[in-house]
Amino acid sequence: MDKRWLNFELHKRKILTLILLLAFMLSLFFVEWHSNLIHSGGFITAKQIAAAFFTPDLSGDILLLALESSWTTLSYAAAGMSLVIIIAFFFGIFASGILVSEGKIKRYIRPLFRGQLGIMRAIHELVWAWLFVASIGLSSFAAIFALAIPYGGILGRIFADMLEDIPREPIKALEAAGASKIQALWYGYLPMVRASITSYAMYRFECAIRSSAIMSFVGIGGLGYQIQLSLDDLHYDEVWTFVFFLIALVLIIDLWSNQLRKRLVQ
């Protein structure tokens, strides 16, 4: 037999697949297969929730409440995103290191700001929310700051990456024409990333709305809070009304984002 056939390098992927498959099959033996595996009443509840999907509560009171909570959720998200854009703009520019020339300063500035962005987004917005609620109480600012910090970290990082990834030729040409670093930022970097960063920020806005809804579980108010209350009361029809409003919010942002992108790209 050909000796090469026994080469480990050639088969390492197949061996890994085999080990993973074995591990999965082995794990099945450790599951206790009795009736408590799935909550016995759960199936009935699931059926009720599914049935309520077709009969959402459309009474005036609930619709008004849903509208009001949607507004709260939207305003938290919008206020949070405004902060996010400011944070991402300044941190992103410094984290990309484009304003300083190659050399010592750049070697410190870039990692410093990239590190800060990393810390900001390493902690989830819900954890930030707990921290802020614990420190400044159940205020709207808790929700807004909790949203702004990790999202600023994410958007800032992406912005920095985009700034670093653009083609160098136009920037070099601008500098040869006598542009300073800030002028090159304004006439080269920013126009070149404008379309993609706008579209990514809009996507983040969409995420912020979902997050802001979830965040209201912490007790800040909004769509998520209403969903929780209705779930506690077993009013699944109301739950669906609120969920539909949440979906509608996200879809509206998506539409807006598409319009905006079309205008920027053409």
Partner: peptide
């Protein structure tokens, strides 16, 4: 920049 100007292939412009 007042002394020396450069022109290269067309990738020098900011297309956006």
């Amino acid at each position: 920049a007042k002394k020396i100007g450069i022109i290269r292939q067309q990738f020098d412009l900011v297309g956006e």
